[in-house]
Design a binder for these strands. Structure first.
Lengths: 122, 122, 122, 122
DNA sequence: GTGGTCTAGACCACG
DNA sequence: GTGGTCTAGACCACT
């Protein structure tokens, strides 16, 4: 339900855009479904409409949504394709980190154990 | 040594601090060795002395170096301990990313393959 | 008939007006033929009557149709003249683009090849 | 010298971005050259800094420039690559228009003559 | 000094 | 009602 963390280093508009992507990934919005209006989201989250607008603009530039003047914002990609793009991003970051760990002399077994290890329940 | 990439999104002072840590890890500076002076580094890298000062302050706050008024900056930790702290940081980030990948439905084998697979020689 | 694409960047009223022009060009309506009423079109296309009204107003301002109070909207120009006006518009746009291409240093042969080359069957 | 036309339908930030691209294409700024600052451009053009900022953000998202906090905005692509991207765009638009003209029954000779014709000296 | 983000409030085009 | 643009002014991070 679109949690905004003001202590987060990421800008608000990015958190909002990410949150909407999450909702799409988890099936809350199907393709061509209408998203909440800029003003509605702004008042719900107590955020300036310009900031919400910017989040939508970011999503549109990524091809995740499309917006129609006078009508609203709509989902253009289905959850599956958004999920795949996200996994590709994560994969790249993981590879970069693994590379850095190797450069510091970590061996493969240690790296693998970090990832496969059970997550702590925090 | 100490390559600065102005196109990198990370701030300069962070790149400088990271570069000095790298040098310590790779044995260029032993424990209690004296680091180059702020002014010297600034002129070598053509960087504002304030920025170098900030990099040193960051390293001091992390306990990697200590400064003696009027004498200069000195390495406090040896390469091994710096390396271990770095690996711990990387490990945490890896775990967070793996967690995110799982939340998106990636299975363990796929995640492991991303990390263990051979990197392209770019 | 009259396909509306909500993802299109062009406003709906413009798409409707363009679609009616297409019908006239292709002979679906002869000169002085009566067009469907605003309310009828609105219900057929599931579009706000104000939008249809605006499309008719646009066509009237271009001289393509004329409206008679209490009776309806009628085609004023025949298909041939509408087609010619359209081609004149396209011609102007083509010239402007060709001029821009020349300003960027493209040679005549390249420009000609872009236009005359076979289109892919997408 | 970055002419802004307030009667133009295109938003100001787009005109500014386009104008800067033009300058890069025509060799006014080489790769890695520093662009005027946001505030300077804003005062020169009598435009709000936020609007200039938006133009720069657009150019950065297109990969034409890169920006470094605290230092400024810099050209990332050389004029040639920008010119090629622009020509590709124009080519696509030309093809679309030619297709529309054919759909209206224009023959190839007429279309070609529109483009190769000398431009009027207006 | 630089760029980046956010708020507040206004205006326009569209439906 | 909707989205999109612009202005004004503030604050922050960085050099």
């Amino acid at each position: 339900m679109l949690n905004i963390d003001y202590r987060d280093a990421r800008p608000i508009y990015e958190q909002v855009a990410g949150g909407i992507e999450d909702l799409i990934v988890h099936g809350a919005y199907a393709a061509d479904a209408q998203l909440p209006s800029v003003r509605q989201l702004a008042s719900e989250l107590s955020i300036n409409p310009n900031t919400i607008q910017r989040a939508f603009a970011l999503l549109e530039s990524k091809g995740v949504i499309y917006s129609v003047k006078g009508r609203g914002n709509f989902v253009s990609a289905d959850g599956t394709s958004v999920r795949e793009r996200r996994l590709a991003e994560i994969s790249m970051q993981l590879r970069a980190l693994a590379k850095a760990a190797r450069a510091l002399g970590a061996n493969e077994k240690a790296i693998a154990s970090w990832i496969l290890e059970k997550e702590d329940p925090s």
